[in-house]
């Protein structure tokens, strides 16, 4: 795995992400500054971490989405390269037009920082191959704008094409408004693009990977990615 973690001013989860990538794959990622116009040669995974790029000015992720490095990411994704955006990274991918829809202010108006349960909808993707379809995983969220919304037609397409990979649910896997912490439409926590190579998700799987800290349910995502990339290489 030759991962590149993008770094924007105001991002603060890039080191958690880098640590997890190294822990799970054995290889430290390249840290790529937003002003770069190219990704390191041989990059096979781009990760956009969480945080508050540009202080969430204008709209969450809006300024970062227009930075020079994102043109390189767009070209990389167009060639089928794998891109993972977590939290602010998901917001940036939506603002960049690499994923449809928008992350709005949480319906309850509160910043939510807690563990949530996610239902893994499919396992036959490079991002979810480390899980079983229908499996429930426990990972943390930390966001004020995670309320996913898109127009009706887009949501119908996402659902119809199986592009919702993660959904907020109860500990036993029931999708229920009481467990949909931010009010996202259809309890959507993570989606992929049409081609299936760009994933955006609000929760932070990178923070649940070590038994000494707590649950390790996030590990499957990174282990699955490492496996998928090793196979492809």
């Amino acid at each position: 795995m030759k991962a590149a973690v993008l770094v924007f001013p105001g991002i603060n989860r890039e080191r958690d992400m880098a640590r997890t990538l190294k822990l799970v794959s054995g290889q430290a990622p390249a840290m790529v500054w937003h002003a770069e116009t190219a990704l390191p040669a041989g990059t096979d995974l781009v990760v956009i971490p969480g945080g508050f790029s540009y202080g969430d000015y204008l709209r969450c992720g809006a300024i970062a989405a227009r930075s020079p490095v994102m043109d390189a990411v767009r070209a990389f994704a167009a060639k089928g390269g794998l891109v993972l955006g977590v939290c602010n990274g998901f917001q940036i991918l939506c603002e960049a037009g690499l994923l449809p829809g928008v992350l709005m202010r949480n319906q309850q108006l509160r910043f939510i920082c807690r563990d949530v349960y996610l239902k893994v909808e499919r396992s036959n993707t490079p991002f979810t191959r480390g899980y079983n379809a229908g499996q429930v995983i426990r990972v943390p969220v930390a966001h004020g704008e995670g309320n996913y919304i898109a127009d009706g037609e887009t949501v119908a397409r996402l659902e119809g094409e199986g592009r919702v990979l993660f959904r907020y649910c109860s500990p036993d896997g029931m999708v229920d408004p009481n467990w949909n912490h931010n009010g996202a439409i259809n309890a959507i926590a993570g989606i992929v693009n049409e081609r299936g190579n760009v994933l955006g998700m609000m929760p932070h799987p990178e923070n649940h990977v070590e038994a000494s800290i707590g649950p390790t349910d996030g590990r499957g995502l990174f282990a699955g990615l490492a496996e998928a990339l090793a196979k492809a290489a």
């Binding site: 709209r59 928008v102 709005m104 898109a150």
Partner: peptide
């Protein structure tokens, strides 16, 4: 179109 507004919403 390019920045000030997100025309999705």
């Amino acid at each position: 179109d390019k920045l000030l507004a997100n025309t999705v919403i």
